[in-house]
Simulated scan of single mutants.
Amino acid sequence: MATPLTDAPAGTTGAGIDGYRAVQRLAYDCAEAVAAELRPGTTEREAAAMMRRWLTDRGVRDWLHLPFAWFGDRTAFTGFKVPLQFFPTNLRLTEGMPFILDAAPVHNGYTADIGYASSLGPNPVVDRLLDDLATHRAFIVEAVRAGRTLRQIYLDVDALMARQGYENRHRAYPFGVIAHRVGKVADARLRPHAFGFGQNALRGLLKDGIRGHREGWSPLWNPRKSSGHPATPGLWAVEPHLGFRGVGAKFEELLVVTEDGDAYWLDDDLPHVHRWADRGLYGAELTGTGAGFPAPAGTAADLSAVTEEAAA
């Protein structure tokens, strides 16, 4: 049996769980605040710098990774081939353009990793992708509770995306991950980062990887054989990422897996969950309480019609 994180919650509450919830809310508050300040002409680099400044002003001194911002077709990782393409560029926002803000701060030793997707003004394609992500949130937690392997859940999410008419864009991330483990980061006088990633937090993930290799599990959730096991106890940053014709959208938040195999989302007080509630999408089936494989909310043909209507 895999060894849990040293501060992995044993049940619905546990040591440090409030610390993770607090830093996740801080990161989402940052994303909402910066999103409200974006204007036509803002660059990805400026948006990422705004997030970094907002978080450091509130006490963040270390990172799993520095903030990212992706605009336009870069939200769907169009043409991404090498890791350097993930870093912010001088691409400027225009009206109606989709954007994603991604931040992974460490605060008081606790780590979060969040993704916030929206558009600068109305964009019906972004709206549709965000609506359909609700089904993925419900399905993932239910599948983890059912004890499916991480690899199988990944493939099932792929199948659900295909049924909805979307492309899997988290496949473009390093190692093709839909999720990765997060844990406590020891306070250190030096907080170096290289190539955008905090070295203190990465050391913890590396230790998890070494331990997991010995014990037959992986801290990275992808379609490889190494993910052919149920989720290990601890916290997982989960980020299903949909793509459609150069538009991408995702959420990213922490999933808690307990030692007895239960699973739950760390917090429902998040922007995308409130959005689904406001749009009438937050029912029993979409909160992970339903059984089976949820039906997709739309099809590629439906979304094509939305795209054509927007362009008209």
Rank of each mutant, 00 (worst) to 15 (best):
C30A: 14
A231M: 04
A297T: 13
G209D: 08
D262L: 01
W70F: 15
D29I: 02
L91V: 13
L66Q: 12
G228I: 01
D18V: 10
T149K: 01
V106H: 05
D278Q: 15
G246S: 06
A22T: 07
P240G: 02
G11S: 11
A312M: 04
A48S: 13
P40F: 01
D208I: 08
H180F: 13
P67D: 10
V60K: 06
P122E: 13
A179L: 07
P9R: 08
G283S: 05
F77A: 14
Y173V: 07
H193P: 11
T94K: 15
T289M: 08
L160T: 00
V256A: 04
T3M: 12
P67H: 07
V23E: 03
T94S: 14
K81P: 04
P122C: 07
H170C: 11
F197I: 15
E95G: 11
G109Y: 05
D269V: 08
T149C: 00
K225Y: 05
A297H: 13
R211H: 02
W265L: 05
V273C: 09
A312E: 06
Q199S: 13
T307C: 11
V247P: 03
S304P: 00
E239D: 13
A162Y: 01
G165P: 00
G298Q: 11
V273M: 08
V23Y: 00
V273H: 09
A2P: 15
T13G: 12
T6M: 15
K81D: 12
P294F: 00
F71H: 14
A35Q: 07
F175V: 14
V273Y: 03
V144R: 01
T94Y: 08
H180C: 04
V60R: 04
Q152V: 00
V157N: 02
G16D: 09
